[in-house]
Nucleic acid binder design. Structure first.
Ligand SMILES: [Zn+2]
Ligand SMILES: [Zn+2]
Ligand SMILES: [Zn+2]
Ligand SMILES: [Zn+2]
Lengths: 138, 138
DNA sequence: CTCGATTTGATACATTATATCATTTCTCAG
DNA sequence: CTGAGAAATGATATAATGTATCAAATCGAG
């Protein structure tokens, strides 16, 4: 990952690999597994899993990519970039994903749940269900 | 999984494999991977991953076991059994896990976040951090 | 330029999870 | 009771996800 210097503006300062992986994710607009990303960027020269995982780790630490733990999949941030105050809802059938921003009020309420003796570093909030379209189809 | 009949009381009606897996988890009091469980129950005759995964699926659908998606690991419900209104906090260092019950107020607040066009089926709420002991050790 | 540090590439492997088919056990109509 | 079909379990194989490790290339200070 390239050095992140003083003003961490947008997607300056991403490594070439990070840019490739991010573009793959933005193109898809659906969550992708690391290996699906690998297939997608292979033509551009990336050919090994650790390369993809490294780029994903860099992008995730910048808040530009989020990992959906329920799906073992990755998605480009719907806002370009954001900190830890987000959640996801997704349809288990069609994989449609919606990123949800948590306002301060909601987030502070959540944090109150955390036991005092744990210093919170990361919050995972994911809602799984069926979207209207998929319900209708059932 | 054995038939679950009229009064789904407690752990009547669990299959022999479910009982073995549940006891392994209760003994450990720490989250275990499916393969750690497999090692633990092997002496009792279970010897293949799908057997463990099937028992875990049954126990999870009963709410007697929860899956920690952040860790790809499983834990026995701290209350014996509970529905979808729970969360977890865990220490990324020592793996200590605490199950958190969500009261109606908190849960209803969470549900308000879900887009109207998704019928919610499952909520995942996990907090990762460092416990005081591990912070001190750092 | 040259040394050491960081980043990237490559190989190999570990871990987690599931598809599939064979076997056994259970149900219950006859 | 019996035996055909359904359901659960056992077994094998393999797929999908993720990481440890070392080698080569690149970068940056001195
Ligand atoms: Zn975001
Ligand atoms: Zn859908
Ligand atoms: Zn519980
Ligand atoms: Zn700890």
């Amino acid at each position: 990952m390239a050095t992140k210097h003083q003003h961490d503006h947008a997607e300056d300062d991403l490594s070439a690999n990070e840019v490739r992986v991010l573009e793959a994710l933005r193109d898809s607009k659906e969550p992708m597994s690391a290996y699906a990303i690998l297939d997608r960027v292979r033509p551009s020269g990336i050919s090994h899993p650790p390369t993809v995982y490294r780029a994903l780790a860099g992008l995730e630490s910048l808040g530009m990519v989020h990992r959906l733990k329920s799906l073992s999949a990755f998605v480009a941030c719907g806002h370009g970039r954001c900190g830890g105050r987000f959640a996801f809802a997704f349809c288990r059938q069609c994989q449609r994903v919606e990123e949800i921003s948590l306002d301060d009020e909601h987030y502070d309420d959540l944090v109150k749940l955390v036991p005092k003796d744990i210093h919170l570093e990361q919050t995972t909030l994911e809602f799984a269900g069926l979207c209207s379209a998929c319900q209708a189809a059932a």
